[in-house]
Each structure stands twice: as C-alpha cells, then as structure tokens.
Nucleic acid binder design. Structure first.
Lengths: 137, 137
DNA sequence: GAGTAAACTGCGAACGATTTGCAGTAAGTG
DNA sequence: CACTTACTGCAAATCGTTCGCAGTTTACTC
C-alpha cells in the first residue's frame, strides 16, 4: 500500500509536503534529523516549509508509519520497523545502523517472566565506533 | 569516596550548588528531570539558580558520576550505574525502574563478534506497564 | 584571620529546535 | 466549475537549556 493509499484510507489528504517527506524517509532508510529531512525535501521543492515537515512527521508518527528517536540533542526519524532490532550508533560520525538480533525477543520475554512489568516495546541501542570510522584512523 | 573528595581530587571546587545537586540525585536514586532536581535543590536552598544546576549536572556527566538520558521530551539524570541494566519505563506513570540482566552483556559481545562495530556502551529500554499501574486498574 | 587569584555563581539575555495562530491555498467531492 | 474545509506558509511564540558578564566564594598562603 503506497503512502497515498494509506493516507486516503484514513481520510487524510494527499499533499505535496506529505508525499515528499515520506519519499525522503523511504529512500534514506536510515535515521534522519528534521534538518536532514527538510534539506532533502527542499532538493525537490524549495517552497515546502519546515512546519509542514514537522506536521507531516507527527502525523506519520501517530499513524505509526515512522519511528521517532532521540539521539543526543535532537530527534531523528526513520520508517517504522520491527523493534527486535539493535541500533548501533557511531560516536564519531553519528550514523546509526541496524543489527537484526533475535536475542532481543528473548530479553523481552525474560523481563516479562521474571518481573511484574508488562513490556510493550523494547529499544536496544549500542554506542561505539563503526567500521568505516575505525578503519579511517 | 564522598562527592567532596571526588571533586577536590580533580581540582574542582566544592560549592553549595554542587553539593546539593549531588545530594538530591543520591537520595532519589531514580531518574529526575532538571525541573525535579531544581525543585528539590530549592527545598534546601532557594537561592540556587537553575544555571548552576545545569552546570553541576554537566560537570558530573563529564566526570561520569551521573548518567543523562532522554525520556520523551526532556532529559533526566540519575547517579551513574553499570550499563548491564535494563531500564523499564512505565508508560502510565512515567517512572523508570531498573532490572539487572546479565544477558545484556551477552548481547553486547554478540554484536562485537558478529559485526565490525566496536561497542562501548549499551542501553536497553523497555516500555510497558509497571506492577502498581497494572494492579491499579 | 587577612589577602589573593581564579573558579564559580546568579542574573538576564540568547539560543535553537519545535509548535502554534492565522489568513490564504489547494485537495477532494459532486 | 464551485464549494467546503483540511492543509500550508509565514511569523511569532514557546520552552528547556546555554552563555556572557559582573560580582561572590573557594582554596591557598602568609
């Protein structure tokens, strides 16, 4: 289902701002800051305002089409994905990559079994140095 | 080693603001926002300014005496602790509790072995509903 | 204790990412 | 094409956090 269809199916209008923001996130498939997104949107259409970008992002969040994450000072967004994924964030270049680890689900179960806490979502983040930064010494 | 000694050992001065901020964090042993901290500091001394609280927190962060975390909109601070600890955050009451899970270290090793990413710190957060909130239905 | 240099504080102004109010624009419908 | 109203651009507001500066405290020496 395309973004247009998703929007229309829920009675939201398909607008240039929304389409472009989605396209940018979908093409990048990585963590982008609001500034990144705005810049890439502007590559397609200078006239889109930052408010519209924020408004599109918050709509997409509500529809659970994107996932917002705080990284250091600012928020980043990426297309929504399964949460049994580890975010590896490079301290040098600030890039985040994904690592698919089924173990994460065990961790979640473990907590559910041992404690009286009922988990709904899990978020595993590891900071460190990525391959390209460590080889670029 | 008391906070006073830690500070003096590194040639920082022991001041009322620093002492109070540390005392508040140490007594709470939980995640406090800057506003929480300021308020509790003010319970002891009205004259301490918020800038001083922020400055104390950022000093303590550099000395790795406290750990700063982003929770939703704002930052929270807590005394530093081992990172093989899972943060369980209740979606209803916004409280964060700790769960000691040795498995976390396995996860870290796994990533180190399988990928070319060199981990330095790991942060596992689980959202859900805590016991008191789920029984208070 | 008094004297000193430098570190630290309070204050208020600045900052910067995000949000909001409003008047105008454009998406969807018939 | 005409009409309704959701959505947008703009500029101003918000709000947690940071910063510059003048005045105060700390730690140190005598």
């Amino acid at each position: 289902m395309s973004i247009d269809e998703v929007l229309r199916a829920q009675d939201f209008r398909v607008t240039r701002a929304r389409t472009l923001v989605w396209q940018v996130l979908d093409e990048a498939q990585s963590h982008l800051s609001a500034a990144d997104i705005l810049q890439r949107v502007h590559d397609h259409d200078e006239s889109i305002n930052s408010s519209s970008v924020y408004r599109a992002l918050s709509l997409f969040s509500e529809l659970e089409l994107v996932r917002e994450t705080r990284q250091g000072e600012l928020s980043t967004w990426e297309p929504a994905h399964d949460d049994a994924v580890i975010h590896l964030r490079c301290e040098l270049c600030d890039t985040t990559i994904h690592f698919d680890a089924p173990t994460v689900n065990n961790l979640r179960k473990q907590v559910g079994n041992i404690t009286n806490f009922t988990p709904t979502s899990i978020d595993v983040r590891i900071s460190g140095v990525c391959q390209s930064c460590s080889s670029a010494t």
